[in-house]
Design a protein around this nucleic acid. Sequence first.
DNA 1: CTCTACGCTGGAAACGATTGCGGTAGCGAC
DNA 2: GTCGCTACCGCAATCGTTTCCAGCGTAGAG
Lengths: 340, 340
Amino acid sequence: MEKEGGSQRATIRDVAARAGVALSSVSRALSGHPDVSDEMRKRVEEAARALGYEPNLVAQSLRSGVTRTIGFVIRDISSPMFALLARSCEQELRRNGYSMILVNSDGNVDNEARNFALLRRRRVDGIIASLVAEDSPYLQKNLTAAHCPIVLLDRQVSGLKVSAVLSNHGAGVYLATKQLLERGHRNIAFITGSSNVYPTRSRLEGIERAFREFKLEVPQDLLATGGFDSDYALAHARALIHKTPAPTAIVAGGLGALMGVTKALKESNLEMGKDIAVVALDELPYIEVFSGDISTVYRDPEAIGREAAQLVLEGLAGKAPRESVIDTLFVERGSSAGGL
Amino acid sequence: MEKEGGSQRATIRDVAARAGVALSSVSRALSGHPDVSDEMRKRVEEAARALGYEPNLVAQSLRSGVTRTIGFVIRDISSPMFALLARSCEQELRRNGYSMILVNSDGNVDNEARNFALLRRRRVDGIIASLVAEDSPYLQKNLTAAHCPIVLLDRQVSGLKVSAVLSNHGAGVYLATKQLLERGHRNIAFITGSSNVYPTRSRLEGIERAFREFKLEVPQDLLATGGFDSDYALAHARALIHKTPAPTAIVAGGLGALMGVTKALKESNLEMGKDIAVVALDELPYIEVFSGDISTVYRDPEAIGREAAQLVLEGLAGKAPRESVIDTLFVERGSSAGGL
DNA sequence: CTCTACGCTGGAAACGATTGCGGTAGCGAC
DNA sequence: GTCGCTACCGCAATCGTTTCCAGCGTAGAG
């Protein structure tokens, strides 16, 4: 019932001593090895319980060469979508006996490289990563030297054997753009996100497909790529609004962009869904209750998290890396109306 | 430049062989031990670089008895506030050389107990936990048997030597309530959250203090405690609205409660800030841009995360556990006006 | 009775690092 | 020349497990 050694933790050696058997027998008894008599199993379990023995996973990892740990490298976990994604991913990993070790890169490639190195030293069994960029200089080395399966979130790095979960942003953006075009919009402004990542390429593909169907040219001067965080997004949104001819619709990709647009419209006393049509790419959780009426291109963050976990588990099972595509859909709400 | 053993990782033994020195010298050279000649250090570093040697943290942990890992047990990381908290906490820990291993309890005490056991087996150096409840049966054992410093988030468990970061919810709630009372509200409904956790007690204290100053009784039939998630919150909010006399103000604690209230008001075509005054306890990030005009009791989640990291680091440094209080403040916006 | 087979157990070698201790070489002092 | 000191290095034990291998006792077969 009580610990014998006082505050020290019981080891397998203590259990062996108490049960009066060899170390190896304890190990076999507790790990379900077949070569163990019932008598032995009972004595060992009894002793283990009495000592409050809990196996040392560090020692097990060293011996077995496997840590049952997955590294999760993320640009910024505070984004609500990532939070949902991380949760479902952790649940799925835990259900399969793995723990998740979480590191933020804070959007910084140097941090990201350090984080990869840290995970390598920790001998994680696999890595799930939302990379800052696809063209970071350390990237090739980080991905090839990892010695473990890797799953990328919404990133494509050519020439490497890694898995990836890709959202088909283009599909939803295509539908949204098509609807705007059908309603007569021609001056549609797009804020698509940083140009060096897959989502932007996918979105552009959707935009171009829609315009092509209408035999129109994409208005290049209303097309804004580039990182859009907070202040910069606001400045950019202001500039877009005041172009001539003024855009009658805005498609804002990413939270920063949406915030910028929202503020800029407020400043100019423009109401979305009335004076100007607005579509957001990716939506906040709880959007229906709080942000109300914003039309969005939606993707299910929990599905992405689960799929990422599945892909890394597949890799651990020895399967070849592969890409998995998650669909997006256009959710029409009030904000995409209006604007002439 | 190239790995020698092919795909196998280099160990300290390989480095020693290549440098033509003893294992122990390699260890000393790489860990900055003083008893190392410049010549030796150079040879070892050279060999280590050539082999792409990366120390095995698992082996180091086993030998040193320290994992430089902190367990983060959380009810649900997908809550936006927790996401921010977790991020700042992870940053702070990483700056101090620790990694964070994240486990969700999904609001379930059994999962929570399993998670604690897992972290114990993983020999984490410390634990930061947002507990499901303060009176869970496993709790005492989990906290006393942890063998490491523990920091609780917004929970008080009496009679135990653990640290805690507590938000002074009462302070903000007091100010909010006072303002409502000053404006003449008397039928104020409160949804405070589950009764078995500290935040609810703190909020109640603030409410009672405000009413006492006005020499009034807290309207008990408008006081709702209990867990408020999604559907249940909605039902409860509906019921509160239709009481007679109808409340002229509602204070909603927690995201679920706020969602419920928002929906219920919409259903009844009541506009917050006009037909009824509303104050939310805790706010969503980006609230100013999206949810607009909701008055809230605010606390800084990043400060809480940093403080939690500091407390656990203090514990690791051998200091005695202590409680740290983070202040809250009342942020008045449009929604707390109106309602007569 | 002897030989083999089998079921179970114990001993010991790993896994990859750190560290106390003992040893050696070099050098200055006497 | 000898002694002692310092600076440095290597040996081996150790952390807590798992697992291979050998041994042992019993039983069954010949």
